[in-house]
Design a protein around this nucleic acid. Structure first.
Lengths: 330, 330
DNA sequence: CAATGAATTGAAACCAGTTTCAATCATTTT
DNA sequence: AAAATGATTGAAACTGGTTTCAATTCATTG
């Protein structure tokens, strides 16, 4: 390992001067600056980040908390964040919680130990009260998941609007028996609550009563979608349309429905959420609510970097628009 | 920030002793050990990893190099690696190259600067000659991608066998005009070369000449699959089957084929590679070559951890089996 | 020409840990 | 009882950088 001292020796200056060159401080004579630069070049010197970090100087790592990286929604989000970070010289640390509260907290500790300079949370397992104390150690930005606190920086889409226009679209297609299955359990606030509100509101406006049997929560994967279809088939009073909380669930639903001999959209209309690549290759093409995933990730990254560079930055809430993409499944 | 000195003060010992407790050194009286543990507990103390790392003690980060995290194959691989790492207290750093040589090298520098203790590469952009020097700074394990060097630890599947059994399956179904499209350009060695060999060998055994017009390289995404279908449709002499290098490409192919009015598998048989979730929801279900992705990632993680803990560990090459999954697209 | 102030530089302290080395104390061995 | 051995402990040095502080040099001003 070549160190700053090797460089100093070769350049014939003190290590202080070398440090000044590294950090682009003013008031160094062009002469010495060149000697140092040459010496660094010659030795292939890279400052040791641990040492810089220890003295509180370096910031190079952002952590992204996701529930499951194999969920394409989150991998696209991470993709966007990583790209913003990389351009500014930041490394991206993947933190996969698997929806485990303890694992989430262990990742928040990265802030305290300065292993991460800031964190973007795309999901929240613990109560905000548990998480809030960690903001003392570095900025935390929410992206996708959100809570009811105006002083927390957030990038969100209007989930209420998303389900509302989706369900309304189904109603306009003539459906009155609309099932609803989505990821999160009903929480007091946040994403899942808002989605639920959008669903209820659309039904209410059309004078349709809510049937609790048609509301299925804690569904995430293609496998879950297949299971839900199984459930629906066994019902005496079967819905004619399903609003799915993700394109994966919708894919599983569609697959199982076709296996059961249902025609889509005639016997069963299906609408998804996210507009992931899979939505397009399903047959029939999946009508879905498009989330601007790349823009969300980009914005979240930019906000976090801004907070790191300018700690006085006030928290801001950004809301990005959703869009109904109509294909052939409705 | 509470430091080791705060703990030492509270426990009434020197920081040396605290350090010894942290690192589980022998020869500490149970008395003092308890005092220290209590003090650490009481202050909620976590050692600063930068400081430990600086002294060359701590190893906690492994980096995973992937071309694109949004490619499900790689996100599943990262998922498996992350889980192995987490269990042993390692953080996982995502390194997305976007197939950029420079970006890849910049990530290898993580080793040199001790920001990562070891690296798992799932793709290789640069020549191994460029990469090899970095092994001086820490272990590098190849997973998925491979090269022709026995002294580099690798986890691979038999790509030759994969394409061979896939193409052979098509031949057994009566096809003699078999197109082939895959990701990588043809390299001297490695994955793509072997796949190509498997394709050629299967054709050769059946006495079928290779038609270069039906070999398409540098294809990765659903979009690429759609484009390839376009190309195939325009051909005078059209293949009756396509071997696709990934399930995504296959999905794009299938979608475009159905749009063009082709029946699958009657007018066109399609076989994919990987056996990702998408393979199952496609209609008809996609016949594909299953790679044991989770096992590959797990093994790669284990090998890397073993090398970190026992640097004398000799390099090893592990080969995992592929499997033909027959669904309805062939 | 003396006084002032800014530019340039390096010695030493500092960050938060680990490791070396030597001192102390208790046990065994001779 | 003296000597040898081993366990326990802390002071100080060390990791590789950054930052503070003071000294020196140089140009500018009154």
């Amino acid at each position: 390992m070549t160190t700053i001292i090797d460089v100093a020796r070769l350049a014939g200056v003190s290590k202080t001067t070398v440090s000044r060159v590294i950090n682009n401080y003013p008031h160094i004579s062009p002469d010495k600056k060149n000697q140092v630069l040459q010496a660094m070049e010659q030795l292939g010197f890279t400052p040791n980040p641990s040492a810089r970090r220890l003295r509180g100087q370096l910031a190079t790592t952002i952590a992204v908390v996701v529930p499951k990286i194999v969920n394409p929604f989150f991998s696209y989000l991470v993709d966007a964040i990583e790209q913003v970070g990389y351009r500014s010289g930041y490394q991206t640390l993947i933190c996969q919680t698997n929806e485990d509260k303890e694992k989430e907290l262990s990742y928040l500790n990265l802030l305290r130990t300065k292993q991460a300079d800031g964190i973007i949370m795309t999901s929240i397992e613990n109560d905000w009260a548990q998480i809030e104390p960690y903001t003392e150690f570095g900025p935390i930005v929410l992206c996708n998941e959100y809570i009811n606190k105006p002083d927390v920086p957030m990038i969100r889409v209007d989930q209420y609007q998303g389900t509302y226009i989706g369900v309304k679209h189904l109603i306009e297609r003539g459906h009155r028996k609309i099932a609803y299955c989505t990821g999160g359990l009903f929480t007091e606030f946040g994403k899942d609550k808002d989605r639920n509100r959008g669903y209820q509101k659309a039904l209410e406006e059309a004078g349709i009563p809510v049937n609790p049997a048609w509301i299925l929560v804690d569904k995430h994967t293609i496998g879950d979608g297949k299971q839900v279809m199984q459930l629906l088939m066994e019902m005496k009073d079967r819905p004619t349309a399903v609003f799915a909380g993700s394109d994966e669930i919708a894919g599983g639903l569609m697959m199982a429905a076709k296996r059961a001999g249902l025609r889509i959209p005639d016997d069963l209309a299906i609408i998804g959420f996210d507009d992931q690549p899979i939505a397009e290759v399903l047959d029939p093409g999946l009508t879905t609510i498009r989330q601007p995933i790349a823009r969300m990730g980009k914005k979240a990254g930019e906000i976090l970097l801004a907070m790191l560079n300018e700690p006085s930055q006030g928290p801001a809430v950004y809301e990005l628009p959703v869009e109904l993409i109509i294909r052939e499944s409705t």
